[in-house]
Write a protein that binds this DNA or RNA. Structure first.
Length: 366
DNA sequence: AAATTCGTCAACCGCTCCTCC
DNA sequence: AGGAGGAGCGGTTGACGAATT
């Protein structure tokens, strides 16, 4: 037997509030206050609303000194800092931002700040890693995020009791497949840049090894079997000892993506995409010089921009498509597992195959 | 120009927390 | 101590305008 609902849902009005309702609520609250009982308030005020709805309307919209929109850089910073420290405790975070409501902060985080931070973090992460000149693979690790843990790829806030600030310094933290987030520091220097692109529908990837050779890998139609392509129809350079080399691949939608890899001592990678529209709206990062990191895939032609994918070579990062454009693509995720040797995959057409492969490999190897 | 997709955000839902009796 | 019920919270939904195809 469940708990009785707070009001009769069939007898209360729902949906957007009218100006009349707003003024009725404001007048009542200014005169009487809540009298410590929101549930009884609508009846007293003459509103055909649920008490909870009244409370929400007042707290999030009508009460004095509410600020809407236009979060400042300072506020961004506060939100990011507090989110890192305490997670999605929106009311607590909002209490540090005068005039902001928990709902506002939550919406802002979910719609804008998360993406902004993600892009920034990726740059930050990549900037901290200098791995073109490294020639050793990191220790075995299985740092992964689940497709549902996009937040985790930014930084999974641990529970306050276990959080150790010493480990939170300019590294991404990943949670494993276990339901409980884990703090795993990506302290091992990543080995080599690895990039993948979706040349055609099958999985393909480009692997840059310690001698700066590039291998283009592709899966045949059979899952679990990857083989090195004998040849590729894409122009690429096999010599990264030059100060600058380029790899050209084609995106699925026909636009061509150009990745310039500079393998000189500065260990920088510059990337650009000649198909502007295939960049995500918030993908300005691809125009920046990235230190020792490689952008994976630029976009999929599935009806809209997606988050750009990056890989930190010591840790796979899962990125999830935004809202599915097509039903059967709902919840797609892309993955990269640099620590699994040659097996790289990100093409959405075989995500499930890759996932199966990766999961098996993980079981076998870790 | 119309259709489709995306982004935003107010509002809702259901759960836990807290207080009072 | 424990049960009832209101308050508070965080996740999610859905309407709607904007942007894109």
């Amino acid at each position: 037997m469940g708990r009785a609902p707070c009001c009769d849902k069939t007898k209360v009005k729902r949906g957007p509030w009218s100006p009349d309702e707003d003024s009725t609520l404001i007048r009542f609250l200014e005169t009487h206050g809540t009298a410590g009982n929101w549930i009884a308030l609508p009846q007293k005020a003459g509103l055909k609303r649920c008490g909870k709805s009244c409370r929400l309307r007042w707290l999030n919209y009508l009460r004095p000194n509410i600020k809407h929109g236009n979060f400042t850089e300072d506020e961004d910073e506060i939100i990011c800092t507090l989110y890192t420290q305490m997670g999605s405790r929106w009311s607590l975070i909002a209490s540090n931002l005068p005039g902001r409501t928990d709902n506002d902060v939550k919406n802002y985080w979910n719609t804008k700040l998360k993406k902004k931070l993600l892009a920034g973090k990726v740059i930050s992460l990549i900037t901290t890693n200098n791995y073109i000149n490294s020639n050793k693979f990191p220790e075995k690790s299985c740092n992964r995020t689940t497709p549902h843990d996009l937040d985790s790829s930014i930084s999974t806030p641990p529970s306050p009791s276990t959080y150790d600030h010493r480990h939170h310094h300019n590294h991404l933290h990943f949670s494993s497949f276990s339901s409980q987030p884990q703090m795993i520091s990506s302290s091992s220097p990543p080995p080599f840049p690895i990039l993948t692109d979706h040349m055609g529908y099958g999985s393909s990837s480009t692997l840059v090894n310690s001698t700066h050779e590039i291998s283009l890998m592709s899966s045949d139609p059979t899952p679990h079997h990857f083989s090195q392509l004998g040849h590729v129809s894409h122009e690429f350079s096999t010599n990264l000892n030059n100060s600058s080399s380029s790899i050209f691949t084609s995106s699925q939608e026909g636009g061509s993506s150009s990745v310039s890899v500079s393998a000189d001592n500065s260990s920088s990678l510059a990337m650009e995409n000649s198909s502007n529209k295939s960049l995500s709206a918030d993908g300005s990062v691809v125009h920046e010089d990235l230190q020792g990191g490689v952008l994976m895939d630029f976009s999929f032609g599935i009806g809209g921009p997606i988050y750009n994918e990056f890989v930190n070579s010591s840790s796979g990062i899962w990125f999830q498509d935004q809202k599915a454009s097509h039903e059967d693509e709902a919840g797609l995720s892309y993955c990269c597992y640099p620590n699994l040797g040659d097996h790289q995959s990100s093409s959405y057409a075989d995500t499930k195959q890759a996932q199966g492969l990766i999961n098996q490999s993980v079981i076998n190897q870790y």
